[in-house]
């Protein structure tokens, strides 16, 4: 796996983490303030995908060592 993909996944993971926390807080403060306007599932899937890429990369690099 290319290092650039790993870097991208790391950045996406961080941004999505902050984004999802912000959306969760917004939903807790005012229900219906996020999900009618934004596909949260899509955000969660991208977040999860970036986490999986990071894990795969780390496992592979450990295996190489």
């Amino acid at each position: 796996m290319k290092k650039s993909v790993y870097i991208l996944a790391q950045e996406v993971f961080k941004v999505m983490l902050v984004g999802n926390v912000v959306f969760l807080i917004m939903e807790l403060i005012k229900p219906g303030s996020v999900w009618p306007f934004l596909n949260i599932i899509f955000w969660l899937i991208i977040w999860l995908a970036s986490a999986i890429i990071i894990v795969i990369f780390k496992v592979k690099s450990k295996a190489k060592m």
């Binding site: 950045e11 996406v12 941004v15 902050v18 984004g19 912000v22 959306f23 917004m26 303030s33 996020v34 306007f37 934004l38």
Partner: peptide
């Protein structure tokens, strides 16, 4: 990515 997140929060 951070600009994208800010725009999304602004949109919401």
């Amino acid at each position: 990515l951070w600009s994208f997140l800010l725009v999304t929060i602004g949109f919401l």
